[in-house]
């Protein structure tokens, strides 16, 4: 709670400085500080501060984003080739992808990564499965999704269900 509030404070200060750019005018700086603390106080009073409101991203996540960007470029090339070729050979397909993240943040990261990669879209999210629509049927390889899920869960520090089930076999989900 306190850590999330501190993270939110840092984000707000950086955001205010970035958008206003007033570094040398003390009056405006004081006014900005007042508005930042008003916003922080309001959010604390509304009890909307938790790890989801102000997620802190560790260094692992940056590596994940680099990997994701490379994947996005690869998938873009395939989709552009399919779309711009004159006879446009596509083979749309839907598959169900198992989702092994246990926290909401991990699930959101995984589903957003699937949607960000062109050629695959997360259509519907169930309890432990995602319905994925793919433009080309060769994009629905289970191993690719498994690797993306593993990396996404690792990036946001998600205890994957596989590991949880090993710890306490009878209670898989809480």
């Amino acid at each position: 709670m306190i850590r999330s509030a501190l993270v939110l404070l840092v984000i707000l200060i950086a955001y205010w400085l970035m958008l206003s750019g007033y570094l040398h005018n003390p009056v405006l700086l004081i006014l900005g500080a007042i508005s930042i603390f008003i916003v922080l106080g309001l959010s604390v009073r509304m009890k909307i501060i938790d790890a989801e409101t102000a997620p802190y991203i560790n260094v692992m996540a940056l590596g994940y984003f680099v990997w994701l960007f490379v994947e996005i470029i690869k998938a873009n090339m395939a989709v552009v080739k399919a779309v711009l070729s004159p006879n446009m050979e596509i083979s749309p397909k839907t598959t169900k992808v198992p989702m092994k993240q246990s926290t909401d943040l991990g699930r959101v990261t995984f589903a957003n990564s699937i949607t960000l990669t062109p050629g695959t879209i997360a259509v519907e999210i169930g309890d432990d499965k995602i319905l994925v629509h793919a433009l080309l049927s060769e994009m629905t390889a289970a191993s690719g999704f498994a690797e993306m899920g593993k990396r996404a869960g690792k990036a946001v520090g998600d205890p994957m269900l596989d590991n949880l089930e090993q710890d306490k076999a009878p209670k898989g989900k809480s």
Partner: peptide, 23 residues
């Protein structure tokens, strides 16, 4: 944009739109 115009149905058009949004 060309893909959004050319592709045959709604779900496939989403892929082309996503391409614009990302890269």
């Amino acid at each position: 944009a060309v893909g959004v115009l050319r592709l045959p149905d709604f779900y496939t058009r989403m892929h082309a739109a996503g391409m614009t949004d990302t890269l």
